[in-house]
Simulated scan of single mutants.
Amino acid sequence: MESTNVLEFPDVSKDYISDLKYIPEINTVIVTSWDGSLSMYKIIPSNGSYNITLDKQYNVGFSILSCCYSQDGIYIGGVQGELTFLNFQTETFQLIDDNKATSGIIRITPYYHDFIAGSWDSTLQVIDHIDHSIKSFKAIEDAKILSMDCTNEHLVVSTTGNKIKLYKLPLNSMNNGTLIDSVLKYQTRDIKLIPDGSGYVIGSIDGRVAVEYFDDPSRQFAFRCHRKKLSDVQFVYPVNSLLFKPSSDILFTGGADGCVSCWSLKGRRKLKQYNKIDEKSVVKMAGGDGILFVAASDDSFKTNAIITQDIELQPSSVYLIVLDTN
Results as ranks from 00 to 15, higher is better:
L243R: 01
V183Q: 10
K229H: 09
Y112I: 14
S247G: 00
T123E: 10
P24E: 11
G48F: 11
G207S: 03
T188R: 01
S147F: 09
L86I: 11
P110D: 04
V322E: 14
G77I: 08
S173Y: 08
I30N: 02
F223I: 09
L124F: 07
Q220G: 12
V209H: 00
L124W: 07
Q309T: 14
L243I: 11
H132S: 03
L83I: 08
V6R: 08
Y112A: 09
D196Q: 04
N5C: 14
D232L: 14
L184D: 04
C68K: 02
V236H: 03
M1I: 14
L184Q: 02
L146H: 03
I134K: 00
R107Y: 06
D97V: 08
V283E: 06
G177Q: 02
L166E: 10
L38C: 11
K163H: 08
G287Q: 06
Q273H: 13
N152G: 03
W34L: 13
N87V: 13
I44K: 12
S147C: 15
T90S: 15
K14A: 13
G255F: 02
E2V: 15
Y167C: 01
D121G: 07
R189M: 10
S66H: 05
L184Y: 06
V183Y: 06
K266T: 15
S46C: 12
I52T: 04
G203S: 02
N99G: 01
